[in-house]
Amino acid sequence: MAILELSGITKRFGGLTAVNDVTFNVEEGEIFGLIGPNGAGKTTLLSCLAGDLRPNAGTVRFDGRDTTGLAADRMCRLGLGRTFQIPRPFPHLSVLENVLVAATFGDPDLHGEAIARRATEMLEYVTFPRSPATLASHLNAAQLKRLDLARALASHPKLLLLDELAAGLTPGELADMAALLRRIRDNGVTILMVEHVMRLILELCDRLSVLQYGELIAHGDAATVAADERVREAYLGQNYIL
């Protein structure tokens, strides 16, 4: 069953069409990859799904209902979690409080002491390396990404949108991240991930879509996409190994 159905999503910024008539489904329980060169419109598409941007045309169905144009906070409470390409922490809150925000407001089913418990659990779940009392403004980039992930998980999402979560990780950290994402999926969370690190994509994703200049140019399992002539052209001259 499809947990997310996009049809004809179009988003324009003035004269620029950042996302053009994109249609695909994400099936429940899969890890779905969205790739494409810089500026292809990946982040814009995620923002249209998450309610941060309103698409100019097209519809989004999430978890069986039409959610086109719903605000981001509604989407979160409906079960859509999201991390940002550039992490967006609450800088003057502690690590624990950062996650507590999402546990408090993102999951309508959570009450009382279960909220704090959820926040603590999520930090353990992502194996957060520093004290929960640390101020978020004292974290480095990799730690901020992990915090962003813990925050997104704390609202107990059915679908997780990840925007270049693995950017800048060392090979060792990459392996950890792959294991973590697989565990998240095995716990029943569907994942839609935007990623430039092809190793991670090929290792994790059941299916892929490729975006270029806002349009979907290829779609299918990893082998099919990697063999696609247009994909090879789109990536020509860039140092991605398919």
Binding site: A72, D73, R88, F90, L93, V101, F105, D107, R151, S155
Partner: peptide
């Protein structure tokens, strides 16, 4: 208070965490 501080420190993240600003 938690909502106030979250909104004041990062509106987009507050929204993404389920807060109606």
């Amino acid at each position: 208070g938690l909502a106030f501080r979250a909104i004041g420190q990062n509106l987009a993240a507050a929204r993404a965490s389920g807060i109606n600003p």
